[in-house]
């Protein structure tokens, strides 16, 4: 059964420890722009972590003209073959969550590959907003853009004027 990092959006505090630990493990330095998980902020005080849902029917894999995106045989995570990726960014456009990013230094894309099955973000999250779960169905339904999730949260909490601001 496929595994994926699932997010409890209501619980996220916006501390971004997940971003820090992700880039430390994967890049050996601390940088939100090199993190595979991203926390977006929306006024007033809404935080939305975005991470790959590891969709079963994955638009990124289907779109890639280089066949640079594949499944990891052990974890079933969608992984990038750095040799094949040419940085065309078609997968980024295709991703329904916005969970694929460009490494501009190397002109290739990168994404969450589940740290080989033991994601660091899940381990560090101090409020259990992130968890690693086995999913018996296509996780694609969880792949949403940060703006959409922020709007939903704003409605859920009945924020006055239903108003969130972002660029």
């Amino acid at each position: 059964m496929p595994i994926a990092v699932m997010v409890d959006y209501k619980a996220c505090t916006g501390c971004r420890l997940c971003e820090i630990v992700c880039s430390l493990r994967n890049e050996k330095e601390i940088s939100p722009t090199l993190s595979r998980i991203r926390v977006y902020s929306f006024a007033p005080g809404i935080d939305v972590p975005i991470v790959c849902a590891q969709c079963l029917k994955a638009s990124c894999i289907e779109t890639c003209p280089q066949e640079a995106l594949n499944r990891d045989p052990d974890t079933q995570a969608v992984v990038v073959n750095e040799e094949k990726c040419v940085g065309c960014k078609l997968c980024i456009e295709a991703c329904p969550a916005g969970a694929i990013f460009v490494d501009s230094r190397r002109n290739i894309v990168f994404k969450c590959e589940l740290c080989g099955g033991e994601p660091e973000c899940v381990k560090i999250c101090p409020v259990d907003a992130l968890s690693l779960v086995k999913v018996p169905f296509d996780t694609r339904i969880f792949a949403r853009k940060a703006e959409e999730i922020a709007r939903n949260l704003s409605e859920l909490w009945a924020l006055p004027r239903g108003r969130i601001t972002h660029a």
Binding site: G14, C15, R16, L17, D47, V127
Partner: peptide, 11 residues
């Protein structure tokens, strides 16, 4: 909801 500063587990 709870809110935290950067890198803070306390919220």
């Amino acid at each position: 909801k709870h809110k935290a500063c950067h890198s803070c587990p306390v919220n």
